[in-house]
């Protein structure tokens, strides 16, 4: 189909608008992070003076004193462990749902859906009370457990959608061709299932990385506080000054890797988000 010049111009405008809308907050926080204390209130979108001081201040004092390093380690560790466990449990369940015939299949799916809709604030109080009597308060498992719960529906739905597309007969064909069941599984099924699991893993990781409510309710020190919670607790130059610059720098550091990641795997993420049709 041929497009007129007018259509193309219109399209270019639409495209630019979407781009600007999507990018403004990101560019803004990057710009803030490079501003100096003297120019941070100059209200200009582009910094007039560049400095890396805000970034340096995040790492000053090494692990023990830096306000950022420990939360970053916590965030990474908690999100990775959550992702790992969640994908294993979800793969079991998704395999069963996609391949096996058993009563309770639809209950499981409906249940997962219900969990996806569950309001987390309703569990915060009881979890706080349980965790404090169990000693799980302000520990990694104390956050991993709720993250697991709320990421499983996402992972299950995504994986079920992927597993349903896998031509499982190939496994039998491979066995007919003389492969052992184990070989058939590792050589045929695993490569087919891996992309789906990887997609689900990205979505779960982003979910755990993003959480704020549990992170501020169930932690109280650097032992387990994650970056989003730490950001809200940053300290300024004096007791009463706003640490705008350091917040911006830390925000950039936790955002840029995720953006690069998202961009690298955008096809997978889109496929995952839409196939499962479960919120991310």
């Amino acid at each position: 189909m041929e497009h007129t010049a007018r259509e193309k111009a219109l399209w270019t405008i639409c495209l630019t608008l979407v781009l600007i809308f999507a990018l403004i907050p990101v560019l803004w926080i990057i710009s803030l992070s490079f501003k100096t204390p003297a120019t941070i209130t100059d209200q200009s979108f582009i910094p007039t003076e560049f400095s890396f001081d805000n970034y340096k201040s995040l790492f000053e004092g090494g692990i023990s004193e830096s306000p950022f390093i420990k939360p970053l380690i916590n965030s990474l560790g908690i999100a990775l462990i959550t992702t790992f466990i969640s994908i294993i449990l979800a793969s079991f369940a998704a395999y069963a749902i996609a391949r096996l015939d058993f009563p309770g299949r639809s209950v499981m799916l409906a249940g997962a859906l219900a969990i996806a809709m569950f309001p987390p604030i309703s569990t915060v109080g009881p979890l706080f009370d349980m965790w404090r009597s169990l000693g799980l308060y302000d520990t990694w498992p104390g956050l991993i457990i709720p993250y697991l719960t709320f990421s499983l529906p996402l992972a299950i739905y995504t994986l079920v959608a992927f597993f349903r597309e896998i031509p499982w007969d190939l496994e039998k064909a491979a066995q007919v061709d003389g492969a052992t069941p184990f070989q058939a599984f590792t050589k045929v099924i695993v490569p087919l299932a891996a992309p789906g699991m990887f997609t689900a893993a990205i979505l779960v990781f982003i979910f755990a990385w993003n959480d704020f409510l549990f992170a501020i309710s169930l932690t109280s020190s650097d032992a387990s506080r994650t970056v989003p919670a730490a950001l809200a607790f940053f300290t300024g130059d004096s007791t009463f000054t706003q640490p705008t610059g350091s917040i911006a720098a830390a925000a950039v550091l936790v955002t840029v890797p995720i953006i690069i990641f998202v961009l690298l795997f955008q096809r997978r993420i889109v496929a995952g988000l839409t196939s499962g049709a479960v919120k991310g």
């Binding site: 979407v18 803030l32 704020f212 998202v262």
Partner: peptide
């Protein structure tokens, strides 16, 4: 570009 907001931590976006 549409995926960028999705990837950003809500707290970061709120601060920005």
């Amino acid at each position: 570009s549409v995926l960028i907001p999705y990837g950003i931590v809500t707290v970061v976006a709120a601060f920005s």
